[in-house]
Amino acid sequence: MDLFTGGHVGCRGCGAAIAARQAMEALGPRTIIVIPASCMATIGGSGLRTAWRIPFYHSLFECAPAVASGIRAALEVQGIREVNVVSWAGDAGTADIGFQSLTGAAERNEDIIHVCYDNESYMNTGGQAGGTTPFGAWTSDTPSGKPTRQKDMLAIMAAHRPPYLATASIAYPKDFIDKLKRAKEIKGFRYIHVLAPCHRGWGIKEEETVEMARLAVECGLWELYEIRAGEKRLTVVPERKVPVQEYLRRQQRFRTLSEEDLAFFQAKAST
């Protein structure tokens, strides 16, 4: 885990840092990580110092998977093997501004792992709405709640038929780590989408970051599964199930949801 060390300048209770530290446990030192513009691109480095202990490149916003493709090609021509090449992007660098290079790399079946750490908003620029921001969520540029639905990135990425695709949540570290370990053993494009709440964007207390990532699973709005060779398998069946309002009503960003809206989310939740 200490391949991303303490001493970084992420906010107190940063869900993104938790995701990165958990992932490092699985990925290990023979990993090159490319992170486009995002909190994670900036909190681990300042001036001549960094919290990374693996090769890291803070890339431009749109193109982490393309950079990763170039790195893999360079390693191949030099005969350098057994290296995980990872593009690690936020929801913007994955689903929105970064989507073009992501879909390209997925279609080419590049031998890289793309991890989307999703906090469902553009937190590095102060919390604006993006493609994965849920319907109804307050953000700094959707002051009346986001009027449109969340982009279904998992369906979009599954449509690329990658050799490996999985969801994860920082509240289930062993599940996340196991998935990365399985992904490491597979060649080709691997996509892992990890829910990593941001307490500032979600309007929760900083100590509730992990709890929210758990409630998302327990209420059925965030299912933990993997798809290998087209076969979907649930990897975590939560011990307890809760109605969606136990998850949504705890978050300030959903304070304006109506009963009708809650019913919409409840219908969306897996049972």
């Binding site: 490149y57 890339s59 950079v67 170039g70």
Partner: peptide, 19 residues
């Protein structure tokens, strides 16, 4: 690298040169 755009073309070259 059969990239999907010019932006990615140079981004991939940046990755290759970095490595």
């Amino acid at each position: 690298i059969r990239v999907e755009s010019d932006h990615s073309a140079l981004a991939a070259a940046v990755g290759a040169a970095l490595a």
